[in-house]
Design a protein around this nucleic acid. Sequence first.
RNA 1: GUCCCUAUAGCUCAACGGAUAGAGCGCGGCCCUCCGGAGGCCGAGAUCGAGGUUCGAUUCCUCGUGGGGACGCCA
Length: 557
Amino acid sequence: MPRFWISAGWNFRIATYIMKEIIKKCLLAAIEKAIPDFKGDIPVEIPERKENGDYSSNVAFVLSKILKKSPQAAAETLAAAVSKTSQSGVSDFSKIEAKNGFINFYLSPDRLRREIAEILKRKNKYGFSKPEKPAKIQVEFISANPTGPLTLGNGRGGFYGDVLANVLLAAGQKVSREYYINDRGEQILNLGRSILKAQGGARYSADENLYKGGYINDLARKIKTGLGESEAGKKAADLILKEYIKPAVKRLGIKFDVWFSEKTLYRGGIYGKVTGDLKNRDLVYEKDGAVWMKTSKLGDVEDRVLIKKDGSETYFLSDILYHFDKFKIRKFDRAIDIWGADHHGYAPRLKAALKAMGIPESDLKIVITQLARLVKNGEEFKISKRAGTFITIEELVSEVDRDAARFFFLSYSPDTHMDFDIGLAKERSQKNPVYYVQYAHARIAGILKKIKNQKSKIKIANRNLKFLKAESEWNLMKKLMEFPDLLSDIAINYEVHRLPRYAAELARAFHNFYEKERVIVAGDEKLSSARLALAAASKIVLENSLNIMGISAPNKM
RNA sequence: GUCCCUAUAGCUCAACGGAUAGAGCGCGGCCCUCCGGAGGCCGAGAUCGAGGUUCGAUUCCUCGUGGGGACGCCA
């Protein structure tokens, strides 16, 4: 995944219980003793091998040059300094050591116990954070033309955008999810022609650019005959939005706050304001009867047309207006556009337009999701909306369970070019890791329910957490407390695919605990109550991670 | 031709410039007197090629090769 997202200077990390932040602060305090004006980043990671601690920093490698010491010597100095300063109050760490130049932190039993109590207390808000000043963020995704049903590619961006928005909300930001509807322009006219042809208009028979497919015939029957291209196109677009797109989006469990109509951009004063500004900045000119913008002066490879010689506006012009509206009218601090890879070439001109409007480039993030290549029975399946050969998202969800589809798509980084075989997807659906995660949740729900039904004396009790000593219990507790770190990371780097991975790891940690230890131990009420607390905490975090992914957390399966 | 993405285990994917490159599926073993076996444990198995930067490269840079995508007064 491109790194520039990470380097963008937005910092959402405020919550004080995010472990990586706590460690960073400790290290920074220690570093500043030796280097008062230290400005660099302090990396903190969770090591793969547990003999390297629960958290680890390699900052000593960076500092060794400045301090003119070996990394190990620098690490030792820092580890000693951190140990000294972090002893005040209740300590989070049982050990801080310098090893091979790394500084490794071991969580104290007390810290882990407090975390379980914290989870039980915060419940469905565990992992959420609250910045001092929330940013206003717009996430725009899918935005497919209302000229046909949604395709698989739309689904990929849809799940991604939906979940990214959830993560940003969990990070305490103000988020608006939007679908931009291209409800004017050439493709609407083209849709109109397609309808007229399906209704028997022979005039367009030679035109191969028309939309085809069963849905066109359906629409042709629903729309009254004798309309003009434009009228028929608008009617068809309305119907497609209402009968195909919105229901599909709903079925996928995707939510939108705003359905933004391109047409409305031409109703207020934005059009005059923006085009006037561009003219004043000497960024437009006429050539060959069209109006062009000097985008090549602003980083694009060539100039682009704003108004075609027939007098109609290009999609580009609309998009300039739309982004002006996002930043200058509605005043979003940041906009995230999620596009399919087929639109990537469009990014430079949009960035150029932002520059022309005086909007900082870093305020717009464009996430490109690579296309899913469709494979059917082992052979590539060419998709074309115009030819009507595409797999709709409806088809997908009718074949594959929604939870499984979401988990499957969310598991991939947007950069991967995934091969998607609908037959295989159906087969894999049975083996989808989502059930593994849901099963862990249902398993816990079963135990908790049993306790409740039996009116057992055993209650979930934090005060007995000190009886948790088994290795599988420690591993589970550590995994649980990664959740706030994870959400905070994703809110910054947009690596949504880490969420399903984490959920599966957490489920694994729970299953492992469950197999190795009995939750309810006959005759040991204290231990049982502690283990129940751990199980209940696990259920909460499993549910929170599933919720954020828009996947159900069933109590029974 | 130019631009974007990509190449890791048999397959599908992970890995903030760090320590012995991790999962799932598949494959080979093992585990049901006991809370949900849709489970647990163990094992075999991989960084496209050549240079470079770095204390350290799967990660960054250059070149090559393969794959996907874009280059319109469509969106």
